[in-house]
């Protein structure tokens, strides 16, 4: 894509921001309902200088990252287990088929009651939401590995376990990282929603707290921040992906 064709994509984004600014300035929408974009950005920087607010971001990030990493390990381990034999494949996939269509968010109250209102119930929700896309991507990726790659390794003297971990898993890496990207965005969204539904800290709580006190401007800030967090982490993962997959054919 040329620079020019990229610039054209900024038009609708700028247009929306301008429309928002105009709506707020024209007085059609009362300030209490719709703060101007300038005010929101100002408030954003104000809050970013506030250590209490930074602590809220830290809490959300901690829950997000730990949930995502646990899901990454869990999803990958289950996929390797599933790829290792027919029996494990049938067993793991039976559970996946039962649990996948279930709206996991419905289990959140149960997690609160079992794990408490603190970090662990939020992390648990992130884990079960994010583990599925990672498992499915890894499983598909490992299934689609060219059999001859494994044969070549086995002939060279590799054991079955070695093939599973050092041939099939790396061969599936592009697919795993694609799944991880999807899961990362899901983790961002889920951690925020879990904090909105029940929490006393974190960005989601900041939003709900502002809503209770009708501070509209403070409702915009956490939403913008969590979206930026999602974009930033996603871009980071893409960069990491390019670095890790240096030898792989482009897809």
């Amino acid at each position: 894509m040329t620079a020019n064709s990229k610039l054209i994509g900024l038009v609708p984004i700028l247009g929306l921001v301008l429309l928002w600014g105009w709506l707020a300035a024209s007085g059609m929408a009362p300030r209490a309902l719709l703060p101007s974009p300038v005010d929101v950005v100002q408030r954003l920087f104000e809050l970013l200088a506030d250590p209490d607010f930074l602590a809220q971001i830290g809490t959300t990030l901690f829950r997000l990252v730990s949930g995502f990493l646990i899901a990454l390990v869990l999803g990958t381990v289950l996929a390797v287990l599933s790829a290792s034999s027919e029996v494990t494949q049938t067993a793991v996939n039976a559970f996946v088929r039962i649990l996948a269509p279930l709206p996991k968010i419905a289990l959140y109250p149960a997690m609160i009651l079992i794990l408490g209102f603190g970090h662990s119930s939020k992390i648990a929700l992130v884990v079960i939401e994010a583990a599925f896309p990672i498992y499915l991507a890894t499983y598909q990726g490992m299934r689609n590995v060219d059999k001859k790659l494994v044969w070549a390794a086995r002939s060279a003297g590799a054991s079955r376990l070695h093939c599973l971990l050092f041939v099939m898993l790396p061969a599936a890496a592009p697919s795993i990282l694609t799944g991880a990207r999807v899961a990362l965005v899901i983790s961002c969204i889920v951690v925020f929603l879990s904090e909105m539904m029940s929490s006393t800290e974190g960005l989601g709580y900041v939003l709900i707290d502002a809503a209770r006190n009708f501070r509209t401007i403070d409702m915009f800030v956490p939403i913008i921040l969590i979206s930026a967090l999602g974009l930033g982490l996603g871009a980071g993962l893409s960069a990491l992906r390019r670095k890790l997959l240096v030898g792989y054919p482009q897809d």
Binding site: L149, S155, V167, G247
Partner: peptide, 30 residues
């Protein structure tokens, strides 16, 4: 399979994540 019989496939079946040298050294490392 065993290292007494070495296959060569039409599809090459090289390890994409290893360099040429690492690919060739693979069996020896094993």
């Amino acid at each position: 399979p065993g290292p007494d019989r070495g296959p060569v496939f039409q599809e090459f079946a090289l390890f994409a994540w290893k360099t040429v040298l690492q690919n060739i050294a693979y069996g020896l490392r094993l």
